[in-house]
């Protein structure tokens, strides 16, 4: 898969590792991941900002039909998470489906998010877990 090319994995590492998004200097809105122009007002005057690492669940899904490389983690809980300044969709880890409710508080946590087989690059990034 293309997403496992080393240059692709490398150039997206900062926003995967540190939850770096962009704030528009024109309209003030924040988006993630960083884009070249504001998705709301089209301004190109953007600055990188670190997003809050804590948010709450707006909605979630418990996914049973997962990739074979996610079978160890099945069912995978996916959350639409409100970070206040913007939202993010991410896997929720360290939780059982019954632990997650709409409104649950979550925090970002650094985990393996994929790998290119047994010999290719490992992709690290942020997932979310119940606040500790």
């Amino acid at each position: 898969m293309l997403s496992k090319s080393p240059p692709v994995v490398w150039r997206s590492r900062i926003y995967r590792y540190r939850l770096i998004g962009c704030k528009c200097k024109n309209c003030g809105r924040v988006h993630y991941p960083p884009a070249s122009a504001c998705p709301y007002c089209s301004s190109r005057d953007l600055e990188e900002v670190e997003l809050p690492r804590v948010g709450k669940v707006l909605s979630y899904s418990i996914v049973y039909a997962v990739d074979s490389d996610a079978r160890e983690r099945s069912p995978v809980i996916l959350g639409l998470i409100d970070l206040g300044v913007t939202r993010i969709i991410a896997e929720i880890t360290d939780a059982n489906p019954e632990d997650i409710k709409i409104g649950s508080q979550l925090e970002a946590v650094f985990r393996r998010i994929g790998e290119d087989g047994e010999t290719g690059v490992i992709i690290y990034g942020l997932k979310f877990r119940p606040v500790i």
Binding site: E72, R73, T93, D94, V109, F110, R111, R112, I113, I122, Y124, K127
Partner: peptide, 16 residues
């Protein structure tokens, strides 16, 4: 360690 953890991810957590 969980299925999405390894010595690097745990090292990050401890370092944070």
């Amino acid at each position: 360690a969980g299925p999405d953890e390894d010595s690097t991810t745990m090292g990050v957590e401890a370092s944070i």
